[in-house]
Design a protein around this nucleic acid. Sequence first.
DNA 1: CATGAATGAGCGTTCATTCAT
DNA 2: TATGAATGAACGCTCATTCAT
Lengths: 207, 207, 207, 207
Amino acid sequence: MQVSQGEGTPAERSFTGAARRAQIIAATIETIAELGYGQTSFARIAERAGLSSTRLISYHFAGKDELMSAAVADFYHHIGQFMAGRMAGVTCARDALRTYITALVAYIADNRARMRAMMEIFLNFRDEGGASRSYDENEVLGHLQRILRDGQRGGEFRDFDTFVMAATVQRALDGLPFLLEARPDLDLAACAEELVTLFDLATRSGS
Amino acid sequence: MQVSQGEGTPAERSFTGAARRAQIIAATIETIAELGYGQTSFARIAERAGLSSTRLISYHFAGKDELMSAAVADFYHHIGQFMAGRMAGVTCARDALRTYITALVAYIADNRARMRAMMEIFLNFRDEGGASRSYDENEVLGHLQRILRDGQRGGEFRDFDTFVMAATVQRALDGLPFLLEARPDLDLAACAEELVTLFDLATRSGS
Amino acid sequence: MQVSQGEGTPAERSFTGAARRAQIIAATIETIAELGYGQTSFARIAERAGLSSTRLISYHFAGKDELMSAAVADFYHHIGQFMAGRMAGVTCARDALRTYITALVAYIADNRARMRAMMEIFLNFRDEGGASRSYDENEVLGHLQRILRDGQRGGEFRDFDTFVMAATVQRALDGLPFLLEARPDLDLAACAEELVTLFDLATRSGS
Amino acid sequence: MQVSQGEGTPAERSFTGAARRAQIIAATIETIAELGYGQTSFARIAERAGLSSTRLISYHFAGKDELMSAAVADFYHHIGQFMAGRMAGVTCARDALRTYITALVAYIADNRARMRAMMEIFLNFRDEGGASRSYDENEVLGHLQRILRDGQRGGEFRDFDTFVMAATVQRALDGLPFLLEARPDLDLAACAEELVTLFDLATRSGS
DNA sequence: CATGAATGAGCGTTCATTCAT
DNA sequence: TATGAATGAACGCTCATTCAT
């Protein structure tokens, strides 16, 4: 009660406040997806969101950093729920890898703008020290590495460096939004199948 | 008074002029590699290059776009020569793929800053229309796709979508600079071997 | 609905209202004393007072001007009572001057933050016309000038310009908060004695 | 040669550049003297100086801090030369004190706006740590304290705390711009005589 | 070949204040 | 009595670029 957040950041616990935040986050994602991170400013976001001034953004978020962090957190929540649902009930490692790939491709197909925006943020958003803040390899690759190690332990997968393999898988998937930009009519379902086969061959133990 | 070609861009055919351009390009690459594309400005580049004002940059390059294009062209020339030398004498497609991967990894290992800078430019540089200008899939992937198609034609490689495969290979390699950022002591030679094996398994036709 | 006086300023005659006003004034004084007038904003005051928004300040005070005026009035009331108590029973002018100096130094010693804040307000607070509103020489110097004139009339003090002398005495005292800032361990009692002697020598009639 | 100062701060060694800097400093002093430090912005300064945009200020000074520092340095240079000329040839300490007071009052009389501006800057300009940067007691009081100590050593002055006395003298003088604000027609020459007598009585050793 | 000077537009942020409950 | 939401204006500052020599 009565915890101040420095004027600029009002209480998040409010219907209208949460709605405004969501609206601003949505406009932010759209703007980044379309114009890129570098061309995205509060003015551009406010314009897209139909806000009277950029002041409203500063009012709901402590600053640009918090806005971007909020957009990323929103994304993680969204994709996390999606992936958790798809991965449920998977038993063996090969199935897990296949499901991971197809599920992520499906997510990308349904969230092209969001994915483009997140790639932009991950690649451009840096904390004060200058380090890329968001593209935390460990966090992103952790899940994949676990699948791969499980598969090796169970004999399903051959012996390979799980870090390199996980990074390769993830980058193949992360690259799809860029591919889509160059070829908007790319058949993502077919892509998914190609990638599943590719990495199945690349990972499975001989015979 | 001297005739200049291209309005605002002085004669490129001059020893001192070319040297200045090279100096500015080098400073640009260093700045982008260290601070990222978004934090790179003419002021920052001039500071690093030891120039008294940004005017000299505007003098030698028509604008920011031309400067970036010049940096990219410089890179293409540099890497093109390197790769041509390594690929010379390769006979079969499997060898070509293996050589492509190991050569590119070697190049990355020796040009970390340059690679980081180029990745930044490719991901952030857009022409006036807003389209990502530099990451021209066809240009970058063309060589790889040719190798893959040759291998399929000759029966060395199985049947797969060469575009997806080429993109996957390329992104695995493009990702190394980022991996190096997170793990500066990564063993790139070992990585190369992992990737060679990975894509050999993924591409070769079942004997 | 309740009748408010002064549009926007709620009833001052209320226990909770007065308490809130006092709380806000206290936070204002602390903030100014610590950060200076220029860095003091409603946001910063609200933060220190533990208020959820600056709205509460605007609610209890018609504006920034009234808040500052209220803080000054509060100060005048506080110091007025203190000085009146100390000055009571003084008979001759030399004693009055001595008592004025020692009492004011004592007050300053016990109210450092408050004094710093008031100096900041006096020096920065201007009304709409741009004139320094608060450092009303007549009001502040009036008491001193009366003492000095009384002393001249009674033959205790030599002939001097009472305005200049009063201003010099007052500024010597007003300067102590600044001196304390530079030398926090300054011996204020000793200072008071120095100033008493200084101005006794400067004012008393020869022989 | 070719020392970069971060684009915004061009070489000071240039006729036109130095003139511009002087012009901007003059406009800054006028603006502060009239509106006070808090109401002084780049926009207001540019307006008074007749500049096309505030950009020109940022171009010639690295930032607000450097502008203020430059104004203060300018003032120190100006007043330093003036005082040095007046203090030349002074022999005894009583003369030195008298000359210091009369000379400073004369300077103030001829530089009212400048003095008001400097008082504003000294009282409001703080470095990043929040400490009042400019009103360095030691630097300002040093000269006075030296005069006072010399007088004590030579037997001209009685025994008193030179720090308190110096601060009292200085504050009496520093206060004149404020007095002038309240009473624009104040006779400064008479003031000077009053102060000379006041501090002569307060300091001299009993004959 | 080079450069000092200047520029308008835009940046994220903070300001005290008002609206509507 | 209190509060969350919203606001236009202004802040210092940086941007790539152009002018004039």
